[in-house]
Design a protein around this nucleic acid. Structure first.
Lengths: 140, 140
DNA sequence: GCACATTACTTGCAAAAAGCAAGTTAAAAA
DNA sequence: TTTTTAACTTGCTTTTTGCAAGTAATGTGC
């Protein structure tokens, strides 16, 4: 349970408001999706994602996510140019949020990736457990 | 399943991206929370909410939510000054998204409204069913 | 060892969105 | 019929977003 740092001040104590203040923009959750579902770990991979985030915005969002304890960063041991971004436990805990958002849009908007949606519909809990298991391993 | 109107163009077909494009700002989900959990139905009630949204932003978000079929608006029969905003089925279907966002923040950030959080933890499905039932009735 | 490539950014500037304060309109209440 | 109330709109400033170009550090091929 993190405390607020100096500059931060929440508009209210409502937990939904906290989520919205941390994740309520057009990019943060997409970065988390790329890590969680596609296994992305580097700046370059995020840049290559289909939605085409700008380089400065990506750098800013990664900083924010790290500041909020959702991801960690460390230099790649075998290639010093690369930074490796990883989800923390707090980040992995966003899996249910992502899942519900995917299911909502899939049910009400015209979207693609029917395979993923079917998987989520058929065994939501199993998929989330799978994501968690994969990441627990990766973080060691 | 709605189709995109003229001006709209999605950055990608990913369902998460659709959700983020529709709801990924600092206010839309709070408005939905106020309707869903607090039973708010009028402009004035939304304005009075603790986070203090600006009047022009509120008007804009309500327009967007209506354009996306998440809420409906109609003039109050017994008081012609009032507009009554209601959640559609699509709007009610956001209950699981809201719930997971509340639980995530409650688990990882310093927040208030412990009563709601406990309720969600103890019987998530029951609470969502309850919200749905209350609204189905209200919409008639 | 040196040129070239790669990775992860930063910087500067223009455009879009958010936020504040004040004003407007239509309907209801006194 | 004057005053209130509800739901906005308008004008302006500040903040955020987004694009294009530039930079620093590390790695690779010869």
């Amino acid at each position: 349970m993190r405390n607020l740092t100096a500059g931060e001040k929440r508009r209210s104590g409502c937990p939904l408001n906290a989520s919205v203040e941390i994740l309520g923009d057009r990019w943060s959750l997409l970065i988390i999706r790329d890590m969680m579902l596609r296994g992305f770990r580097t700046y370059k991979e995020f840049l290559g994602s289909y939605e085409k985030i700008a380089t400065n915005i990506l750098a800013d969002r990664l900083r924010n996510l790290e500041a909020h304890g959702i991801i960690t960063v460390e230099r790649d041991a075998s290639d010093g140019r690369k930074q490796i971004y990883k989800l923390t436990e707090k980040g992995i805990d966003l899996a249910p949020v992502l899942t519900e958002m995917v299911l909502w849009a899939a049910g009400h908007e015209k979207t693609e990736n029917e395979a993923l949606v079917q998987l989520m519909k058929k065994d939501k809990a199993g998929l989330i457990a799978e994501i968690r298991k994969r990441w627990e391993k990766a973080r060691k």
